[in-house]
């Protein structure tokens, strides 16, 4: 059987969803038999490849760079999964959303800094006014809430998707 091309993406999140993904112990081995991980923080690829079957997205969309990336990812992915509360609801990253970006950066990089006070300019993407859920920008095929979703939930969802089944999250996955 042809292996499914699986990608994972880390936007504005804490990497906890990726940790939970790794936490599935032997489940990872079973998955590895069915899928090739073609992109993500766990592998080396620099460029998001074409024709990806399933992409798991961790994190909210917070910067212009996130927007560009998620649009490209969507265009190259068959089934896009918003994985975890940051991707689904914007969660903790959204706690800055009622503070103007300039004020926020001042507070963190000037008032809050011990040395090298000053706003970052080079090599960091421009923050959007607010951190928002992935589905505000692109079509999401499946939402998996949780902070993070447990490794069992992720394993269940990924196994279902790989097998072409529609996962029944029912009352298994909750916010928080």
């Amino acid at each position: 059987m042809k292996k499914v091309r699986l990608a994972t993406v880390w936007l504005d999140g804490c990497s906890g969803c990726h940790m939970s993904l790794l936490d599935m112990d032997a489940g990872v081995i079973a998955l590895a038999g069915q899928a090739d991980i073609v992109y993500g923080p766990l592998v080396d690829a620099q460029e998001f490849p074409e024709e990806v079957d399933v992409t798991l997205v961790e994190g909210a969309v917070s910067s212009q760079d996130d927007v560009n990336r998620i649009q490209k990812i969507r265009a190259r992915t068959r089934i896009l999964v918003a994985l975890g509360d940051c991707a689904v609801t914007s969660n903790v990253p959204s706690m800055r959303n009622s503070i103007p970006v300039n004020r926020l950066l001042q507070r963190v990089y000037v008032e809050g800094a011990q040395e090298n006070k000053g706003l970052p300019v080079d090599g960091v993407p421009q923050l959007l006014k607010q951190a928002c859920p992935v589905h505000d920008f692109v079509k999401v095929d499946l939402h998996v809430p949780g902070c993070p979703p447990s490794s069992q939930v992720i394993l269940g969802v990924v196994s279902d998707v790989l097998a072409g089944r529609k996962p029944d999250l029912g009352s298994k996955a909750r916010f928080g």
């Binding site: 609801t89 914007s90 959204s94 959303n97 859920p133 999401v140 999250l169 996955a173 909750r174 928080g176």
Partner: peptide, 21 residues
């Protein structure tokens, strides 16, 4: 939270308001 879960609310289809409170 429990109600959202039992009703199968896996995401919110409306834009969040993000009020300052």
């Amino acid at each position: 939270q429990a109600m959202a879960c039992s009703l199968g609310v896996t995401h919110v289809r409306y834009p969040y308001d993000y009020p300052k409170l």
